[in-house]
Design a protein around this nucleic acid. Structure first.
Lengths: 335, 335
DNA sequence: CTGTTAGCGCATTCAA
DNA sequence: TTGAATGCGCTAACAG
């Protein structure tokens, strides 16, 4: 490894001068600078980043904590964060929390111990209180897909409520009155809010929400199928289904088709997320675009900025709004 | 930040002793050890990892270079690598190369500059020669989904040829004789090998490969559709399609269905990868399981081991073999 | 404009 | 068994 002293010796100057040339700080004579730069080229000198990290107490790494990077949603999140990190001279250090409170906490400790001054976190299990406490300890900590009023300026989140309401609007505009819902059995934040949005949408449209048309199951393909079965067995009639996410929506479609229903001619189905699946199923799925990649990009930059000493606590939050993607799974209500 | 000297002072010992206690090396008196440990607890001392990285010249980070972490395949890759890294006390530093030769090279430089002693790479654009040269410079460098005989012990790869041959066997066993292929228009490694495997499979089965039933397009949903159109227009009859990957397979299904064909009753379709899509389409897709997560886990461990000074160059390579997943997209050939 | 010096936190000498 | 001293590579403060 070639060090700053090697360069200094070869150039016949002091290491401080080399440092000045490398960092472009301080005054250096033109001739001297040229000579040093030449030597740097020849020797292929690169500053040792570990040394710099040690000295400056910052590793130039952004930590990312998500449940499971192999899930499409979190993959997109990571991709957005990576781009923002790199654009700012940082790298991305990832940590899977695997959906456990304990490991979410451990991940923060680990990342902070590794010298990550900025951390971007998708927390599913820590409470608002815990996150507020953590924010006091770690200034570069940002939460994505979460909103906590007390620390609003660290929250980059998405308007689940408005999104769902928008879905109801779409269906209502197509004449649907009997609308079923397939939600997640784990009624934590996202499912709750989306369901709330649906109820709000109904109210705004002057529709009555039929509680018998509310089915719950796991938030995956099988869960979607289960919900559809439950809805069909309820005996209530419906012309549309709003699913918690795309995967459930596809499950609903599968089960409906299996039972001889035509989608969307007889039943319309709407998903949530705009995952890759939407374009790959038949019919293609109308859904809400969750701009997670864009949000993560924004959030990573925010985490970097907040970690800086110069950061001034802003009194604003970071809310992203929905876009409806219309494809082929929604048709006018049959008469 | 509490340092080793803080602990030393509080415990009334030297920092060397604290270091010995922390690392469990060297002799320390029992009473002394107990006292130091107590202070460490009280003060919440944690060794500064940046300092250690600087001192030991290793950051305990594994670098990962893939084209795009948001793609399912690479997401699974990252997940496997992260688990292996963490299990060995390392973290995972990710770098998107975005499918460019230049950025693949830049990513290695960047990661190495960041002090990553181990790097796991999915290279699409660098040549064998380039990778061989790189291996000489970086001992902890491992390639995934690539096989280069000269550096076989750094290659963790998958038997594409055998996989495709296995698909042919499956179809032949169901009586299919007129089998079409939808391959990628970019005929680099994977597509070439998979196509080769198909040809081999045909030979082994004593079947004749009809070149008119070979369609090429982009390796995505649209490409699959395009291939199906091409095949239908060729005028040749076929009862099965082998697609380059799952996405193309689903595209083929879409186009066939659109043109009034029944899958699998009239035409069977097989994919490759076993992506999440397979279970979410109708009919569910028979495919080859590409165990990328398992492979990445293995490869990350390998990269960590190779980076160690004690690593002895083994004379073996790391080949993973296929498993056929049978679902609903394959049926006996119509008579 | 340039050189000298000191020190970041730690682990490893070498002495005692 | 313990302590003192040293240096990793770099930058910032201070001198000149």
């Amino acid at each position: 490894m070639v060090t700053i002293s090697d360069v200094a010796r070869a150039a016949g100057v002091s290491s401080a001068t080399v440092s000045r040339v490398v960092n472009g700080k301080g005054k250096v004579g033109d001739a001297c600078r040229a000579r040093v730069q030449k030597i740097i080229q020849e020797l292929g000198y690169k500053p040792n980043s570990s040394s710099q990290a040690f000295l400056h107490r910052q590793t130039m790494n952004v930590g990312l904590i998500t449940p499971k990077i192999s899930m499409e949603f979190f993959g997109n999140l990571a991709a957005g964060a990576e781009v923002a990190a790199r654009a700012n001279g940082y790298s991305l250090l990832i940590c899977n929390s695997l959906y456990e409170e304990e490991s979410e906490m451990a991940a923060i400790e680990s990342l902070h111990g590794k010298g990550c001054e900025s951390i971007l976190m998708h927390s599913d299990y820590l409470t608002d209180k815990q996150l507020i406490e953590l924010s006091e300890r770690y200034k570069g900590l940002v939460f994505i897909n979460r909103y906590i009023p007390k620390i609003a300026n660290r929250c980059v989140w998405f308007d689940n409520v408005a999104s769902s309401a928008q879905i109801v609007d779409l269906l209502a505009s197509q004449g649907h009155k009997h609308i079923a819902v397939a939600t997640s059995i784990y009624q934590n934040r996202d499912p709750q809010q989306r369901l709330l949005g649906v109820r709000q949408g109904f109210m705004m449209q002057g529709l009555n929400f039929n509680e018998k048309l509310l089915a719950e199951s796991t938030a995956n393909l099988e869960g979607g199928k289960a919900c559809a079965r439950e809805l069909l067995q309820s005996g209530e009639s419906f012309s549309a289904v709003i699913a918690y996410n795309d995967l459930m929506a596809v499950g609903v479609v599968h089960e409906l088709v299996k039972n001889g229903y035509q989608v969307p001619q007889q039943v319309s189905v709407v998903g949530f997320d705009d995952s890759a699946l939407c374009k790959a199923c038949i019919p293609t799925l109308s859904t809400i675009k969750y701009p997670i990649e864009e949000m993560a990009n924004y959030a990573a930059k925010l985490a970097i900025d907040l970690a800086k000493d110069t950061a001034t606590p802003e009194n604003k939050t970071h809310l992203f709004t929905p876009a409806l993607i219309e494809r082929d799974s929604v048709a006018p209500a049959p008469v």
